[in-house]
Amino acid sequence: MKLSSSSFFAPLSRICAIICLVFFLLCSFSVFGYARNLSPVDGFEKYIEEAKKHLLAKEPAATLAALRKATAEAWRRFPFTAVNVHLVAAQPAGYGRFIPRVDNVFRPGEPLILYLEPVGFVVKEDKNTGKYRYRLVADFNMVDAWGRVVSGRRTVGRFEGETAQFPDRYPLTFTYSLSGLPPGEYKVETIIRDLLGKKSHTVVTPIRVEGP
């Protein structure tokens, strides 16, 4: 059978065209996905650059405003969790103002005070007022050494409101009573629920209750 050059190159040209089309589509999807994934980071870097310019210009108010915007951009990428979790010796006086407890051993009737800072919860900004809104609630379980829930309560705390500044420094304090617990090992479960983000995070705090 005799093949002409045109009959040979025609299928080849179609194959090349298909390969080029597939390559173009793959590149388009990759670039689109890459840009979509990086857009929050780009916003973060934009505000950081703004902060640098204002800092060089010795404009403290504008510098801090840009840094707060950068924090809000980074916040959206955080997982919902808690940082700076501590058993404390007394009621905290404010953000970061606490005295850590030296151990996790308690006597019956002694209160357990837990300090933590939630991060990554959803914050809604009202474009009209410029205020930020958040809604958190917390539940509590006391679990013994065998994994049994010996006490607990739903909605031990409700934390919601509006603020003019982005609420990235929002400490929570929980005070639990250990009255009636027999001596032994326990785990305190503090479940924080983000009502706007429809997510939850559980902070597990091991403790030991000693006899009188």
Results as ranks from 00 to 15, higher is better:
1 M>S: 12
2 K>C: 01
4 S>E: 13
5 S>P: 01
6 S>W: 05
8 F>M: 11
10 A>P: 01
11 P>H: 04
16 C>K: 13
19 I>H: 09
21 L>E: 11
25 L>D: 06
25 L>Q: 11
26 L>Q: 12
26 L>T: 07
27 C>E: 06
28 S>M: 07
29 F>I: 11
30 S>L: 11
30 S>C: 07
31 V>W: 06
32 F>Q: 15
35 A>E: 14
36 R>I: 06
37 N>E: 14
39 S>R: 14
41 V>L: 15
42 D>F: 08
46 K>L: 13
46 K>F: 12
47 Y>N: 10
47 Y>Q: 05
48 I>P: 00
48 I>T: 04
49 E>N: 10
51 A>D: 01
52 K>A: 04
53 K>T: 10
54 H>T: 04
54 H>C: 03
55 L>S: 09
57 A>R: 09
57 A>F: 04
57 A>N: 11
57 A>V: 04
58 K>Y: 09
59 E>L: 06
60 P>C: 07
60 P>V: 06
60 P>A: 05
64 L>Q: 12
68 R>G: 02
69 K>E: 08
69 K>F: 00
69 K>D: 03
70 A>S: 15
70 A>V: 09
75 W>G: 00
77 R>C: 05
78 F>V: 01
78 F>K: 09
79 P>C: 03
79 P>R: 06
80 F>L: 07
81 T>A: 09
82 A>Q: 12
84 N>T: 12
84 N>M: 10
84 N>C: 06
86 H>K: 07
87 L>M: 07
87 L>H: 02
87 L>R: 03
90 A>L: 06
95 Y>H: 15
95 Y>Q: 12
97 R>E: 14
101 R>Q: 04
107 R>G: 14
108 P>Y: 08
111 P>C: 06
111 P>N: 05
111 P>L: 05
113 I>V: 14
115 Y>G: 00
119 V>I: 15
119 V>Y: 01
119 V>F: 01
120 G>A: 03
121 F>Y: 15
122 V>L: 10
125 E>M: 04
128 N>I: 12
130 G>T: 02
130 G>Q: 02
130 G>P: 03
133 R>C: 02
136 L>H: 00
137 V>Q: 06
137 V>L: 08
138 A>P: 02
139 D>W: 01
140 F>I: 05
140 F>E: 05
142 M>N: 06
143 V>M: 03
144 D>T: 05
145 A>C: 03
145 A>F: 09
148 R>S: 10
148 R>E: 13
153 R>Y: 08
154 R>N: 12
156 V>F: 07
157 G>L: 13
158 R>Q: 10
162 E>T: 13
164 A>N: 12
165 Q>M: 11
172 L>P: 01
177 S>M: 06
180 G>Y: 11
183 P>E: 14
185 E>H: 11
187 K>E: 14
187 K>Q: 14
189 E>N: 13
189 E>R: 07
190 T>M: 11
191 I>K: 10
192 I>L: 15
194 D>V: 02
194 D>I: 04
199 K>P: 01
199 K>C: 02
200 S>C: 03
202 T>M: 05
205 T>R: 02
211 G>R: 14
